[in-house]
Write a protein that binds this DNA or RNA. Sequence first.
DNA 1: TCAAAAGTGTTCAGCTTACACCCATGA
DNA 2: TCATGGGTGTAAGCTGAACACTTTTGA
Lengths: 228, 228
Amino acid sequence: MIDPKSPVQESQWVWSVAVDVVIFTLYRQDLRVYLVQRTDHPGFWSLPGGIVRADEALEQAAMRQMREQTTVEDVYLQQLFTYGDPQRDTRRRVISVAYFALIAADRIKSDHPDDHRAWHSVYELPPLAFDHARMVHDALTRLRYKIEYSAAAFELMPDTFTLRELQAAYMIILNDSTLDKANFRKKIHDARIVEPVNRYQKTGGRPARLYRFRKDAKLESKARRFFP
Amino acid sequence: MIDPKSPVQESQWVWSVAVDVVIFTLYRQDLRVYLVQRTDHPGFWSLPGGIVRADEALEQAAMRQMREQTTVEDVYLQQLFTYGDPQRDTRRRVISVAYFALIAADRIKSDHPDDHRAWHSVYELPPLAFDHARMVHDALTRLRYKIEYSAAAFELMPDTFTLRELQAAYMIILNDSTLDKANFRKKIHDARIVEPVNRYQKTGGRPARLYRFRKDAKLESKARRFFP
DNA sequence: TCAAAAGTGTTCAGCTTACACCCATGA
DNA sequence: TCATGGGTGTAAGCTGAACACTTTTGA
């Protein structure tokens, strides 16, 4: 942290330390990211974020930014990566600690998108400021990994859901429409990660059983696979 | 990054932005970390690291710290995590971007450890300053994941090595002595990640064939396993 | 000729994949 | 009774764990 050889005062700079948050949700069969339009750069969008306060932990700052700039609260939040190229902001030296967040669409309160803030499909992004396009890309890569070996996908689902809806979520996120229905269901059941509730959802055919996430589910990720 | 509503000047603080590097090597059948002794806090050790300069990229800063404080150069380097609790340094607000690095023991030049700097076993660490113990712990967790699905372990090996030495490396890093010899070899061969050279190494019994890492090896990490 | 370590083959259980089939509902 | 989508069963093939075995060297 501090080079023992140099006195404390020697090398301090006026930095800006910021957080940016990549917030994902599943909405209308699409994976979407929350973006705000930049007033200083018309036509460009950016991730919600801002400067970290002097007495504030990084994760707290990320939560505060979400509270202030979105209608989203109390979500799954995780650090993604720290971006610090000297040129990433042309005005001054700023490093940004990026977070990524997952929220179920039904937990977004009063979502009246306007010209300033909106949920954009990750598959059709508008022009993004700074290196925010890279942040979204990195976050998407991480999300895809995470849902394979953890229960992260459930953070994007409503409280109850059908197995088909869960499978649809996986296919949208992974951008892969080849998942086999029967095998997907077996994996989910074998993992003992969901439990049925006594309700059914109407469909075009036979009604679908509703499930909920088991909070006591534990997925031990014993990898031991070396390289594929 | 910047809140569009607030002017640029409004919220700047005197931060210190530092990098710390967790450098691993394999030496004498042990996984070791490079540590420097703190002059301001006798008996405590810390990771090599220091303040990032105003015009310097984060990764460059990490490389510079290694160059200045160690005899290690040109290594595998990757960002680990950013630690920013307001209390992590009692003297001032400093956030630290931690990196982790891997180097083969035979590439460490002129290693004459003294009382100030030395390679310590990750399994027997001395008291560490700040949150550096947590950094080492996080880096070890990451390393263990990485060698399972990537060729990272080869960064810790000499140019040529026997398969038994490679297996020993895995067992030391994973702290697991139950790897089956035959099955380990099959996995390595099937991954087409090494190729034999026409040399053999003397052992207590039949000489062991030497191998080298195949630079054209590509490990596609098609996970698709959902939860175990 | 024996110990030590390298290196290989074989079996069996369990998992994955692919695909066919049955079930419940509404029109 | 038919279309629609939910839900299940099973055979074939592959993978991984366990373990026994053969080979090559030096003492």
